[in-house]
Design a binder for these strands. Structure first.
Lengths: 165, 165
DNA sequence: CTTCGTGCAAAACCTTTGCATTAAA
DNA sequence: TTTAATGCAAAGGTTTTGCACGAAG
């Protein structure tokens, strides 16, 4: 094996998407390419509407329609590049599921903040449980609900609208 | 303290709901009562539409409207009697969160089935993480995604419609 | 050429809400 | 009697889809 092969090179999201698509007899179109670039360039947590807003506002010939954004998000999920982490304001919230350390979230019910923590310990448990059930697991999602440090001290605020996450 | 007091009696969901409502200056109406009875009598996993179907079909004077079903589900969640476990077919899936052992779910992406497993080990991890972050946690929700034992063996079926859970 | 993808607008869907009426406390 | 809750129908908001056109292999 060559030097190159012995190094595990990080494949770009775009490349991974292309691989996935080819296995499905689907095409890496210009639009899908644009969406992947945007999603992996600037966002961490985002919801479809935020992305749609950006993509449909473009005037430089890189505009992508609402339908295609939604359709592409679905493909990106299937490809293992994105995952839904939560719901906020009745929208699905996505985050990178590739090229990003596995983590889970503490979700504050007072202020709506998401706090990340490493998923290592949880993953161990998950792996064990999955094996015991003959379940081929591809990932997990753990939401810990409660009240964050800050809100524990402050006077109670009920349902403050959260627009960004 | 009396003999009676020394025994921790399991309070019925209905009673617990009444207690919650009174703390909120809300009323245990006939309709809310009917919904609680139905929810805790027959369902385990259910989504709002299934419940609405049952409640609005009644002709025995125990009919409850769609609006009230939705409104009551919200109250039951706030009261700690129900919790959302997942989303399936774009609907929230509820289950009992009271008088029921804590558990989490393996969710098959092929057939949509939910398999329960005890939450003990996960809870330990969650408790530790929450403490480390000064987070007062009230509960968690863990979804393990993948392909179940049965679907691993069978030929691939894409998106089989799941109507019941 | 033949299949797949896009964009648009309309539809589908789930969930919430305004309002007049009815029922708890 | 006072305040909260119900039912209806209509609205709200997100996501999907039918279809004609265009692009990719």
């Amino acid at each position: 094996m060559s030097d190159l092969e012995s190094i595990s090179v990080a494949v770009s999201p775009r490349e991974k998407f292309r691989e996935y698509l080819s296995t499905q007899n689907k095409r890496l179109t210009r639009e899908r390419d644009i969406v992947v670039e945007e999603v992996f360039a600037t966002h961490e947590h985002f919801d479809p509407e935020q992305l749609v807003a950006v993509m449909t506002a473009r005037t430089d010939g890189r505009r992508v329609s609402r339908s295609t954004v939604y359709r592409t998000l679905k493909e990106l999920e299937r490809a293992g590049l994105l995952r839904k982490v939560a719901r906020a304001n009745d929208r699905d919230v996505f985050e990178h599921d590739y090229g990003y350390p596995q983590h889970d979230h503490l979700i504050c019910s007072e202020c709506g903040s998401l706090t990340e923590f490493p998923a290592d310990d949880v993953s161990k448990v998950v792996t064990r449980v999955a094996e015991a059930n003959g379940f081929r697991h591809t990932g997990h999602r753990l939401e810990v609900h409660g009240v964050c440090n800050q809100c524990c001290r402050s006077p109670r605020r009920r349902h403050p609208k959260l627009d960004m996450i």
